[in-house]
């Protein structure tokens, strides 16, 4: 289980694969205002990234993974 809901926060943990996009999508549809926490995330599959880009929830936390932290997460935060 890599998509986990705690209160109003959706935690993405470990390696988020393509299957997780579906789970994330349904969580976001149920709670559009939820925040995403990526602190414990080690990889985000393209399909997951695309859901985050499409729905633009607030993404918080510094991912452990350096590639995610430095290159991918900024794309989700800064909408450029």
């Amino acid at each position: 289980m890599t998509v986990e809901v705690v209160g109003n926060v959706i935690h993405l943990r470990g390696v988020c694969a393509a299957e997780d996009a579906e789970a994330l999508l349904s969580r976001l549809q149920a709670a559009p205002q939820a925040e995403i926490d990526v602190t414990a995330c080690r990889h985000l599959h393209g399909a997951v990234v695309q859901v985050l880009l499409a729905f633009r929830p607030n993404v918080r936390g510094m991912a452990e993974d350096i590639f995610l932290r430095d290159w991918v997460i900024p794309n989700l935060a800064a909408h450029r």
């Binding site: 996009a21 579906e22 999508l25 393209g46 990234v49 880009l53 991918v72």
Partner: peptide, 28 residues
């Protein structure tokens, strides 16, 4: 040796249909 990375939706202006969104049709 990555210097910059930008991931965007193919058409940022396109509206997102919340209930009919297909996460497996890649639009990155």
């Amino acid at each position: 040796d990555l210097l910059a990375l930008r991931i965007t939706r193919r058409d940022v202006a396109a509206p997102v249909a919340a209930d009919a969104y297909d996460p497996y049709a890649c639009d990155l």
